[in-house]
Design a protein around this nucleic acid. Structure first.
Lengths: 336, 336
DNA sequence: TTGTAAGCGTTATCAG
DNA sequence: CTGATAACGCTTACAA
């Protein structure tokens, strides 16, 4: 475990460390002969530059922090794949954190990242996140932070979302068109923007129809599966049950499927269901599940492209305060 | 974007940087009064230590590198959650990389990690990985590396796996018991250990029976979905098709479901199917899919515990060369 | 109990 | 074209 560093190479070669450094960085002011000597020894001894010395010197880490609220979720996995696809082309690394939908965790993670560990942050906020002081902190420290999907609306930065309002509207409208009279909306949290927007679309569609909407059509769900199962069964069993469900996130739709199975109701005959989801196997469910799927990889790529363009520019321009919308796609399947 | 560092604090407080440093680190040789002053100013100015300066000095990064072959996969997501659960208790960070089942990518990632960027690596090798020079490199550099699930058998280190042989045997045995006469085995790659072990279990079970086993019962699949669909249909259509399938990984089982759907064969009447998988919603598939599910979170936790115990010890002991088995669980559902 | 100084590995600046 | 030197922010002997 000999530590081969620039100094060591320099000694071996009878050169100054600075010369070695320049040769390694292919500086124009070094002769080809010297470069060759240095490179070949470096290769032979398997020299690897110390990233932390570099970071310390350069004040940048070539590392991006990614914070998601849930890891076991295709959507977020796809987004990260998209981010990585771009960032790795620029030699950037990804520090990935799971906030588990918990603001406290989120705050802690943010505080870790404040010391310059990352050059930028891309995140989707937890469903509990209402106050955004901790996120403002990040900006104050001069660390670029951008959001996707679950965004912090008030922070002046770029946010990537899908057309949540329109998708919510369209999905609800579709349910109405195929004959649903009582359509429930499954909401994970009223804090998060996507929930709000999807809900708004749903509400507008329902209210524009001649259905007799009532506030209790909007179901405020828990994070955990157990209470949700009970909650869902409580409104599925009675005679005045809904005949349509629009779920704002995949997790709740899965739970709904389970609850419906237990009630012996049939999909889509007795109850129709649509959900926002990036599940690969919606086709294979019983019955195939209608989904609104988000362009997850693309969202990730766009986030990364934006950051890379900002970070690799010598004269850094600030990140614009804007919302960029990448449309989702509705996949009609048997469940609706 | 004022950079508040120790020097800056020291100036403000009229103290030496070393005093501030010691106070921040709660050194016993600093008076309570001084500590209070330092801490309060640090808090006020929101001081965050520079992790890279620390890393450079301490020769450790408090960072673990995680390499997986696929991110959109519940198993790996769960493992990472398990790892993070433990490492964050110790203040460690996770650099996560996706090799996309590609050895070249894997090599590249490893080379990034060689410079001391991480204190240890936990990984699952790509299905293409046969030679392991690049992994030996890591050990030579003195960086602890451990494996889970897809292991590099020959490297002297700790590997966490599940009882792949036994599970393969049991699943095949189960298929035989419920009447299958011709059981195909879906193999992703003959390079990876889990494939080999699961296959070995399957082979032993089949050969111990009175089925007329033939080599072509073992299907060597491609990485991509398209060719696999065609491959599967090519053996599902003929009269002498199999009546049982054991899939060594989730991805192939999904593809098999799709192919079977297209052939109009019925599961489980015409063909029975079992797969290794950590899918949450096997229950909701049509029909519910029998799975062998691995204790993913626990595997992650165990990997992390081992590393943490090694890394946080002052007198570091080497990582033992051993294979630790954590058993999988068979969930019988309708598909078998 | 506090201060001084050196060094972790790199690279930019300034000389030569 | 190459060498010496300083500095990034932090910690730790060693001094006081």
């Amino acid at each position: 475990m000999t530590k081969v560093n620039i100094k060591y190479l320099a000694e071996k070669l009878n050169m100054a460390p600075s010369t070695v450094s320049r040769a390694l960085n292919d500086s124009y002011e070094i002769s080809q002969k010297t470069k060759d000597k240095v490179l070949s020894l470096a290769k032979e001894l398997n020299y690897q530059p110390n990233p932390y010395a570099r970071s310390l010197r350069a004040h940048k880490s070539k590392t991006i922090g990614v914070i998601i609220p849930e890891r076991i979720n295709n959507f977020f996995a796809q987004v990260i794949d998209g981010i990585e696809e771009i960032t790795q082309q620029y030699g950037y690394h990804l520090l990935v954190y799971n906030s588990h939908e918990d603001v406290e965790q989120e705050r802690k993670i943010i505080s870790y990242l404040l010391g310059g560990r990352v050059d930028a942050i891309v995140m989707s906020v937890s469903s509990q996140t209402s106050s955004t002081e901790h996120l403002e902190q990040v900006q104050k420290q001069g660390i670029p932070i951008i959001f996707f999907d679950r965004i912090a609306q008030d922070l002046p930065t770029t946010k990537f979302i899908t057309n949540d309002y329109q998708s919510g509207f369209d999905a609800a409208h579709h349910l109405i068109e195929i004959g649903c009279k009582k359509i429930y909306f499954l909401l994970l949290s009223k804090e998060i923007t996507i929930g709000k927007e999807r809900l708004r679309g749903y509400l507008d569609a329902v209210k524009a129809s001649d259905l007799s909407f009532s506030e209790d059509w909007v179901i405020h769900c828990a994070q955990e599966e157990k209470p949700n199962i009970d909650l869902f069964k409580s409104f599925l069993f009675p005679m005045d049950r809904p005949d349509g469900i629009l779920s704002s996130v995949e997790k709740l739709a899965i739970t709904a499927y389970q609850a419906i199975k237990e009630t012996k109701l049939r999909i889509p005959e007795d109850i129709k269901l649509i959900t926002f989801s990036n599940m690969k196997i919606a086709d294979l469910l019983d019955p195939p599940l209608s989904t609104i799927s988000q362009p997850a990889q693309e969202i990730g790529r766009e986030c990364a492209k934006l950051l890379m363009s900002k970070l690799t520019k010598t004269k850094p321009s600030p990140i614009e305060d804007q919302v960029i919308t990448i449309p989702s796609i509705f996949h009609k399947r048997t469940s609706s």
